[in-house]
């Protein structure tokens, strides 16, 4: 509607400019016309100035809060990553020194590998939760709610509490896991204080605590697949397994994509369990640190803030790049119905 009106006004102006009523008058009129046209276009696109005021006022608390506590700090972190910090406060420009120090940090290869390994292991939660979601989708009645509740309890439990329980289960001398292993003749290690096993032990807890969350997303995705696809496939003689791979998986791919992006992002930021399940004085800590743990150590324990911020910047860039790559690659395998 507003578009046709502007087009009409523009079509009308050349004919009025054609009259010989004095150029100054017609220029002024044209200017006034242009101004009101502009104003009308602005109002059509952006609303009335009275609406603007309310818009800005309603956005203001959030915008100021996010700007002050998040956006500006991000800028500061980037700046800090190029500075070195004196013992008595105050920063000096250090150029790329922090980045160079980080790249040659002997802890880096192990920490980077642990972070990637943990994220990859965490991805195992996806097939697991798809299977459970597909199973849950077969069940009707009250038992659905019961299963969903039981699977979700690990998701809502406090990580600090969950870590405590698992540390107890993993305990080398009195833990339930090693007792069960001993029943089948295996002498279990000290899971969380042995550098060879700690990352795997943490990943198992990570998977256990996220299956219920992923399952709910996949269950919602499965609900969205129309029944008649399966009926048609059945008529064509496709078995259950064939149906799963030819109908369920492709149509579930948007959910799989979402969950894998979230999983990778959270996996690469792994920090909680290193602190909670291993602890600072654990002999396995040196072999089990993650990038996010290195950040915490440099900034808040070793007071090497510049170095810590360089790690934060590298982690952020890596996350953004990886997410961008995932969005690129998704075009090849994600089907939007």
């Amino acid at each position: 509607m507003p578009v046709t009106r502007t087009v009409g006004a523009e079509a009308a102006s050349p004919s009025s400019a054609g009259s010989a009523a004095g150029s100054a008058v017609s220029v002024a009129a044209a200017r006034a016309g242009a101004r009101s046209r502009l104003a009308r276009r602005v109002v059509a696109r952006h609303g009335h100035p009275r609406e603007w005021v309310w818009g800005y006022l309603m956005v203001a608390p959030l915008a100021l809060g996010l700007a002050g506590f998040y956006l500006w700090p991000i800028v500061q972190s980037v700046y800090y990553s190029f500075t070195s910090w004196g013992a008595f406060g105050g920063q000096q420009w250090a150029g790329l020194a922090n980045y160079r120090a980080f790249l040659s940090d002997p802890q880096l290869p192990k920490a980077a590998w642990n972070t990637v390994l943990y994220s990859l292991l965490l991805l195992a939660s996806i097939p697991l939760s798809i299977v459970f979601a597909a199973l849950l989708n077969q069940v009707r009645g009250r038992s659905v709610g019961l299963y969903r509740t039981l699977y979700f309890i690990p998701v809502v439990s406090m990580p600090a509490a969950v870590a405590m329980v698992w540390r107890w289960l993993y305990n080398g001398d009195y833990g339930l896991i090693n007792y069960l292993l001993s029943l089948v003749g295996i002498h279990g290690p000290h899971w969380v204080s042995d550098g060879r096993f700690a990352v795997y032990a943490m990943a198992l807890v990570g998977i256990w605590s996220v299956v219920g969350y992923n399952m709910i997303i996949f269950a919602a995705g499965l609900k969205g697949i129309p029944r008649h696809y399966y009926e048609a496939a059945q008529l064509d003689g496709a078995g259950r397994v064939r149906q799963f791979f030819s109908i369920t998986l492709p149509l579930l791919s948007p959910s799989i994509f979402f969950v894998s992006v979230v999983t990778v992002i959270s996996g690469l930021q792994m920090f909680d369990y290193v602190l909670l399940m291993l602890g600072r004085s654990n002999p396995a800590l040196a072999d089990s640190k993650t990038i996010a743990y290195l950040f915490y150590e440099y900034v808040f324990l070793d007071h090497e803030q510049g170095m810590g911020c360089a790690i934060a910047v590298v982690l952020t860039v890596a996350l953004l790049l990886l997410t961008a790559v995932q969005f690129r690659v998704q075009k090849r395998w994600v089907h939007y119905a």
């Binding site: 972190s77 690469l268 996010a292």
Partner: peptide
């Protein structure tokens, strides 16, 4: 802000 890990603003906060 959603795209950035918390480590990127923790110290200035």
């Amino acid at each position: 802000v959603l795209m950035v890990p918390s480590q990127a603003y923790l110290l200035p906060q």
